[in-house]
Design a protein around this nucleic acid. Structure first.
Lengths: 200, 200, 200, 200
DNA sequence: AATGAATGAGCCTTCATTCAT
DNA sequence: CATGAATGAAGGCTCATTCAT
């Protein structure tokens, strides 16, 4: 007998789900409340019983997207056993994700682009998301190099570089609608991971 | 007798200039024609005698921005004599430019973010701009490694990596409003440039 | 065993109390049910179990306001012993009340202004309130002149004039946010009260 | 051959005219832009090419109403030769005007009632309108008493009292939908005007 | 060229009220 | 009694574009 909360699919969640698709595909600014409520089959007023503003929904979108995307990423890293392999798996994930998303890119970076005010609620979600992603690279790198004779600085540098290559590959794959940049980034990270041998 | 193009500061150019500031600061979608014509001191109709649509102006904006930004970049690279130094100078330029622009980021990437259709006129400008920037890194890298015993593949790889680090540093400096990512990218590129010694 | 009505501070009364402040400050039309229930800490539906409509609450507001305002007025008149002094005290009260209310004026006249239909429930409260105020002036004037050789018509005329001066001073003090009109009205009423001497 | 400006009845003026009727009948707040444009037979956007906001139209309404009402008043005073007679004529005008307007009262006082912020653009029009009306009473009174041995203070007092009786009669005639208050005020002013004889 | 009036769909949000729980 | 989801018309206002002058 399944718990009643297991299939909890409230109207609020439903709206977020529908809006997520539209915000991601068309952009936050280009998506109107009208389109959202039409697809959700609800009245204008109903929307505002669930969200106090469009921006409120925007924040919810990014919060749920954060969880969803992290799940996707972590699921992709799981098969890889070594931390180094996990780092590389992140780039493989990047390629398959962007292809599946029709090269629409990163919801967070796209939102940043149309949100100049860095202190706005939605931008805060962007900053936090990327901070955590950066942190993920740092953890993996630290683990990868943990038995090597390398400085902490070195690890931080390589983690940062991997993160930037990831982000760079992300935006340029989106731009060119071609995963070639990911291949380049992957190769670069591969050589970074092997760098420990040169030290010995 | 002065050349007619010397003082060419046509109304059309004036509109582009004003729109450029607004599109960059606020975003293309968030900027209305009304605001542009008000700042330009012209009538609605006058705008449409110069541009057939807002998108038309958007394309003009990106075309002029392309030239302007390339000039800024090239002027920054000029003092550096060696190609390797020029590559590093690009990152120094990146830092000072982003700071001066109040971390509003790259007009082209921001436009990409709010323009899902990659075949649209404005997106074509974005693709071309980034293609040329990538090409610039390739030329500099090729020159830097020209007397070294490295494969063409190697050069392309390193040029691509430098480009992706540049782009990654760009978006993350915009995101965090902090130039730290540029420092990381710069260091990584520095070690890439020195890699030639290890081969000999 | 305390009487149940002694501490009667029912939820209904609480809502009226909260709404009174808002209706008075902002106006009846400018105040939404949402704001009221939020300040009262109750749900939308709860409101409609207590009042069948916003207008219903509006009527309750005016009814309670009528009692409250009359209490204020009567308390101000009490110290004055003679009827004539009471009439003058009404104007002193007018000045202090309007100042304390930040010159928001008369809840009844303000409601009249935004309620064109004179037969509507709320307007009926306005009419009744002003009818009673007029009656108060008539009683005081009748008492003041009771031993003088003046016709009933004369008393009615002076009572009416005092009432109109009161009302005029009220709206213009509200308008100019300055109690000067009250001083003028007071002086005029003062000379009206002394007029009995001229007759003898 | 009539001048083209003689019949100048611009669309802007037409909108003001239509809005004036609605604002006056229903109140400013109770009248929506939708109703105005429907009666004017224009599109939503057209309204906003002529007025930058609803408040902007509201100010225009009061400005034109000020001129219109003053014209009505002055035309009513014109037949009376003496200043004293003009003062009395103002009350006769008050009665006929309010009756014709179906006892909707004064556009300015009604607007004041639903506009708590005394520094708002519309309220400024109200203040100015009443200031001028007060001034009119002062001029007439000064002229009426000019050959009498009365102090300036006395004139100011009587002018103020007449103004307040006018205003009081206005709001209470509106309230009771009965011109009786005007009769009372008129009588009072009549005796005020004759007061000069008592002084001699 | 330049003007600015006109369009009408669309923007996000609030309204007072109802009703199933 | 109390809840809060649901309604849909209405709120004021902006949008990019067209067109007659």
């Amino acid at each position: 007998m399944p718990s009643p909360t297991a299939t909890k699919h409230s109207k609020r969640d439903e709206i977020v789900e529908i809006a997520s698709l539209l915000f991601y595909r068309q952009g936050y600014g280009a998506t109107g409340i009208k389109q959202i409520i039409e697809q959700a089959g609800i009245a204008k007023g109903t929307f505002y019983t669930h969200f106090k503003s469009k921006e409120d929904l925007g924040v919810e979108w990014l919060k749920s997207r954060h969880i969803q995307w992290n799940t996707w990423l972590n699921d992709s890293l799981k098969p890889a056993e070594a931390s180094g392999a996990k780092v590389l798996a992140a780039f493989t994930f990047l390629a398959s994700w962007l292809k599946e998303s029709n090269y629409r890119g990163c919801a967070f970076l796209n939102t940043m682009a149309e949100t100049p005010d860095a202190s706005s609620p939605m931008r805060r979600e962007v900053v936090e998301h990327k901070r955590q992603l950066h942190q993920t690279f740092q953890s993996l790198m630290a683990d990868h190099f943990k038995n090597e004779d390398v400085s902490e600085e070195f690890v931080i540098q390589k983690a940062g570089a991997a993160f930037l290559l990831f982000e760079g590959a992300l935006v340029e794959t989106q731009n060119f609608e071609d995963p070639l940049p990911i291949t380049v980034a992957l190769k670069e990270v591969q050589s970074m991971l092997q760098f420990k041998n040169h030290k010995s």
